[in-house]
């Protein structure tokens, strides 16, 4: 992430996304597949021995050497009609567009309640013997059990997260770079999916 100053002096926090080049690997049609979608693959070098034979054949139909992360995107009215082998680049978006970014969030491991559910915890000092413990998790003889959905400690992060309606600030078609306003799920250098905002 970095930040840019706009013409009116406002500073905007931005994230740089290397958008593709992506390739349309397969076109799902209502007639054959029951729905309208494109399957995109990220064009990046993959060792040929790392792709199994069925997948090599699948990619061959789109004349792709190797592709990482095949993802399907449903086509919505107004989208371009894409054919297998077509390239999808950062130039698909223009400044002021809204996009959704889907990624895998950073893993936080086994997290306590303060971090995971924003519990307030207790005082650290003044003789307090209650620091970050969960406290009561329910009543006694009724219900004699813990209600489902009780917020407790557990695994946090490493989950699919969608950030909606991020504004595109800048597009660099030459380097295939999208500049979006705000933060994006996942670590630096992680892989994310960028789509036109759903709403």
């Amino acid at each position: 992430m970095t930040q840019v100053f706009q013409a009116d002096g406002q500073v905007v926090p931005v994230t740089l996304l290397k958008a593709g080049p992506c390739l349309v690997v397969q076109r799902k049609m209502p007639t054959t597949d029951g729905y309208d979608a494109v399957q995109l693959g990220l064009v990046e070098f993959v060792k040929p021995s790392r792709i199994n034979k069925p997948e090599t054949g699948h990619l061959k139909k789109a004349a792709a050497e190797g592709a990482k992360h095949l993802r399907e995107l449903k086509l919505r009215p107004g989208d371009d009609d894409l054919k297998p082998g077509d390239k999808v680049l950062a130039g698909h978006f223009k400044p002021k567009d809204k996009v959704d970014v889907v990624g895998i969030s950073k893993g936080k491991g086994f997290a306590g309640l303060v971090k995971r559910h924003h519990f307030r915890g207790g005082e650290d000092t003044h003789g307090s013997m209650f620091h970050r413990a969960p406290g009561s998790i329910g009543a006694s003889s009724y219900p004699s059990r813990v209600w489902p959905g009780m917020r407790m400690a557990g695994h946090m992060g490493s989950a699919r997260v969608t950030v909606r309606n991020l504004e595109v600030i800048d597009v660099d078609a030459e380097d295939n770079v999208l500049v979006v306003k705000g933060a994006v799920p996942g670590p630096n250098g992680g892989y994310v999916l960028v789509r036109r905002a759903k709403r």
Partner: peptide, 13 residues
């Protein structure tokens, strides 16, 4: 030390 990030910053600063 990302090359694209450095390039973008150099363009804007």
């Amino acid at each position: 030390n990302n090359a694209l990030l450095t390039k973008y910053i150099n363009k804007n600063k």
